[in-house]
Amino acid sequence: MVTEPTTNGNTTGKGQSAPDKMVRFDKVVKRFGDLVVLRELDFEVAPAEHVTLIGPSGSGKTTILRLLMTLEKINDGYIWVDGEPLWHMDQGGKLVPANEKYLRRMRPKMGMVFQQFNLFPNMKVLRNVTEAPIYSLGMSKDEAVQRGREILELVGLSDKVDSYPSQLSGGQQQRVAIARALAMNPKILLLDEVTSALDPELVAEVLNVLRDIAHTTEITILCVTHEMQFAKDISHRVMMFDHGQIVEYGPPEKIFSDPEHDRTKSFLRAVLEAR
């Protein structure tokens, strides 16, 4: 499962799709004003692969997830998802910037779980989970409700379908958010520091649910986390970022116990000491 690309995580030619890859970044540039967050970033993720992105804050990890979820606009380069360009569309053999309609078609390939849950507070738990399948995917209401109940059972919340998010603990809310993302049946799950806003005693219930999903489904996962044990448990590959570039990558056993780069060593030392 673990891919070992040749140079800098890139094996395919520029501006081309890679049919056997689920995600492919090709010279991706992201700037916020004068600040360059990602500089010509290249990497690939295979289908069903679980990749954890680590690195200091401001290194661009979260930006990668947000570019994939189309919450931030790309400045240069190409992103390929499931063999199709994400931010560009094919127009007479030429790739032109994607319009909103195209983006809406691409987004359901991805599901995102946010640090702050971002559940819809005005909807009950079940509706939070069924809203998008019904109105984005056009699923029938009955089917969406049935699937919603199944997925909520999967995350251990079948007794909370009629509660409002505000009546749940942080850990329960985050599990609803995971269910909401999964209900769209995405090919890629994007996890953005999903335990950072939780009280320490609520972290485990969320990570256990995610471990289950990682081990029992074929979903591709890109995960930004500071939970190194969790990263070790679920990842096939860990990528260390600094200043918008990949410092080093490899299987978690290697990165966590025998990192090669000094930047990785000092980062891991700092993270482990802080715990």
Binding site: M69, T70, L71, M110, N118, E131, Y135, S136, A181
Partner: peptide, 12 residues
């Protein structure tokens, strides 16, 4: 975050 969640879920 509410806008972003709505976008992420591709709501029309």
């Amino acid at each position: 975050g509410q806008w972003e969640a709505a976008t992420a879920l591709s709501l029309p």
